[in-house]
Write a protein that binds this DNA or RNA. Structure first.
Length: 292
DNA sequence: AAGGCGTGGGT
DNA sequence: TACCCAAGCCT
């Protein structure tokens, strides 16, 4: 049994029952789930995905509504630029591909918000193609099981794709199963902290375990702070705008943060990023929410 | 090519 | 309590 075989057998028994894994899920549904799952935990994505797919079952449906509606529906999933990019993605799918999510990897990668991971995930999980699909879970699993190191490096590199490629079965369908199985393994067994090695199908062959599960050496990555950053201010500003039914005067936005310089910088950033529009005077709305 | 970009739950 | 972490992308 290869690692892929072990993982596939384990997945068949242990996979979580997630809505986007239902066999009737469309490629659009897969794409939406992948974008939502970029840096947001499954438990928070699940209800959001259901609501989104009910309201916008197709790219064309989303493309007909303004970006502001997508930003509102995004709610508190975080990184709301993803909502805007998903909307832009829907528009591009309608314009370039007649409303059908493309199956070719290069066309997927050309869509807004679709990067190395997401493009391969859609090509693989929605269309059953054979591609290495490497996310943070896969990197960690491969790194431990194959290389015997406690944790993977920071970025997805060509080397990561090559490493996973070599583990994939030749058969398309089984290759796709292997990728989702490795991801699931990393998500619920081979976790970043306190991995559950007793439950792992790689228990007897994992290079990291056989080495005695050494701790990571050297200084850990510098923690990214949130409190007091522009990101927090942007979040507060956006929270106000999401709930507004009409244009919001600057006075109202000024209430969310004391530091005037930082507040202005955060608001300008939101406008710069296309999430927010400034109307004629000192009024602001979510992008696409301008009256008339 | 580091660093910016939200949010909330776990330890 | 303060981190740490969660199916990344973009510049």
């Amino acid at each position: 049994m290869t690692l892929a075989d072990e993982a596939i057998a384990w997945y068949a028994v242990n996979a979580r029952d997630l809505p986007w894994r239902q066999p009737d899920t469309t490629p659009w549904g897969v794409l939406v789930s992948e974008v939502m799952l970029q840096q947001t935990p499954v438990v928070r994505v699940e209800p959001a995905w259901r609501s989104w797919m009910t309201r916008w079952p197709t790219p064309a449906a989303l493309a007909e509504d303004p970006p502001s509606e997508a930003i509102r529906m995004w709610g508190r999933l975080g990184y709301p630029r993803r909502a805007m990019r998903l909307h832009a993605c829907a528009v591009a799918i309608v314009e370039r591909h007649g409303g059908a999510v493309p199956s070719a990897l290069d066309q997927l990668l050309a869509l807004p918000g679709v990067g190395t991971y997401t493009g391969r995930a859609v090509a693989t999980f929605a269309y059953g193609q054979r591609h290495p699909v490497v996310d943070t879970n896969v990197r960690r699993v491969v790194c431990r099981a194959v290389e015997g190191k406690p944790d993977a490096g920071p970025a997805t590199t060509a080397a990561d794709l090559t490493a996973m490629e070599e583990l994939l079965p030749d058969d398309e369908a089984r290759a796709a199963q292997a990728s989702i199985a490795f991801m699931e393994l990393g998500a619920i067994v081979c976790t970043a902290r306190s991995p559950k090695c007793v439950d792992c199908p790689f228990h007897d062959v994992c290079a990291w375990r056989l080495r005695g599960e050494p701790l990571p050496e050297g200084p850990s990555r510098k923690p990214q702070r949130y409190a007091g950053t522009d990101r927090q201010v942007r979040g507060l500003l956006l929270e106000v705008l999401r709930h507004a039914t009409g244009p919001v005067p600057r006075q109202r936005l000024d209430m969310v943060w004391q530091d005037e310089v930082q507040r202005a910088r955060a608001l300008a950033g939101l406008v710069e990023d296309g999430l927010v529009e400034r109307l004629g005077g000192e009024d602001f709305v979510l992008a696409g929410d301008a009256p008339q």
